[in-house]
């Protein structure tokens, strides 16, 4: 069984900036536990020397030439931001005062 607790779910939700109700926490705790267990099962299946697959098709060396392409305008870039100021994305304080 996974070690998923309601507190951990609340922590994840706060990291992901999603507001959750107590009822949702209970439901998500249950559902996430199932997912984590499923991944654990896969982990067991590939224990040993199975190399990680990064790409299903054996390809290499797909490059882009070093040529400038148009960027977004500042307005476009910021259009999806929750908040912005002085042409920049505005984000909540990163660390609390220590």
């Amino acid at each position: 069984m996974s070690e998923l607790t309601p507190d951990l779910v609340r922590h994840l939700a706060s990291l992901a900036r999603i507001q959750v109700t107590d009822a949702e926490v209970d439901r998500l705790t249950e559902q996430l536990a199932v997912i984590v267990d499923a991944v654990a099962t896969i982990n067991k299946a590939v224990e040993g020397d199975v190399p990680a697959t990064s790409h299903p098709i054996p390809m290499a060396n797909v490059f882009r030439e070093d040529v400038v392409e148009p960027s977004l305008t500042q307005t476009e870039a910021l259009s999806g931001a929750a908040d912005s100021d002085q042409g920049r994305f505005r984000v909540a304080a990163i660390l609390d005062e220590e």
Binding site: F63, D66, P70, S71, Q74, G87
Partner: peptide, 30 residues
Amino acid sequence: GCRNDFGDEPNTNVCPICIGLPGSLPAVNK
């Protein structure tokens, strides 16, 4: 393909790839 330049107006050398918009795909600079 955004310009690699120092000191331009903020957020003018950005595109869906470097601001991590869903669905964008990176390509390596040769």
